[in-house]
Design a protein around this nucleic acid. Structure first.
Length: 207
DNA sequence: CAGGCTCTATGCTGCCTAAT
DNA sequence: ATTAGGCAGCATAGAGCCTG
């Protein structure tokens, strides 16, 4: 499997190679569909799923970022992503599958421990998890691994928004929503392909 | 089966920032 | 300067899994 930095470098090359960015290519039928996600609830006949829960947090209204200049198309794209992310209904307490875990860990370890809301929404859409689940995953990961504040530094995106990124990610290139999307799509696709190859090989060895 | 561990989700609190 | 809103950190609840 390629290293995470390889993937980032590939995405950086991809970004440099095209002029017009078309953000509409994320298909609703992404590889990590909900029916492929193993859930404890399914195994245990949904015992917890059917039980009443305390009220969830209110949806977040927007990340606290400083915008130097606004881009109507960027804002429209973000609204679309957020709408789709909020529309995802994941099973409660369902653990992330192998593919989702690899993508999330790569972002956490190689890019940022503090993704902005648009980036969280993008990951939610691509990985087919709810926005809150992705947000909780990062929150819990920081909790498990310590705050790690010193491991991320402030930097500015192409539209002047402040984000906290890993030093290695800052060195790579200028970050933007489009570039992050490129990275996630490549990462998700390669992970899906790799896992498919490994499963195929394992089943062939069994027969 | 009990106890410990892990993972996900929730509630609370303090801090920060933008708005007034 | 004050205030309101949002976020991160922390503690903890609850469920599943594993092991003895």
């Amino acid at each position: 499997m390629h290293t995470s930095l390889d993937l980032l470098a590939d995405a950086a090359d991809a970004q440099r190679s095209y002029d017009s960015y078309d953000p509409g290519y994320i298909s609703s039928s992404c590889p990590s569909s909900p029916e492929t996600r193993p859930t404890r609830s399914v195994v245990a006949s949904y015992p917890r799923h059917l039980r009443p829960r305390k009220a969830a947090h209110k949806p977040l209204k927007g990340s606290r970022v400083t915008v130097k200049k606004s881009k109507p198309e960027l804002n429209a794209r973000r609204k679309e992503l957020l709408d789709r992310a909020y529309g995802i209904k994941s099973l409660e307490n369902s653990p992330v599958n192998e593919q989702q875990l690899f993508v999330l860990r790569t972002v956490y370890n190689e890019i940022t421990m503090y993704p902005t809301e648009p980036w969280l929404a993008l990951m939610a859409v691509v990985l087919h998890r709810s926005l809150r689940q992705v947000k909780n995953w990062f929150s819990n990961c920081r909790q498990k691994n310590g705050s790690g504040e010193a491991m991320c530094s402030d930097t500015l995106t192409d539209v002047g928004e402040r984000v906290r990124l890993r030093p290695s990610a800052i060195e790579l290139c200028q970050w933007s929503d489009a570039f992050f999307e490129e990275v996630i799509m490549i990462l998700n696709f390669r992970t899906a392909r790799q896992l498919h190859w490994e499963r195929t090989r394992a089943s062939n060895q069994c027969t």
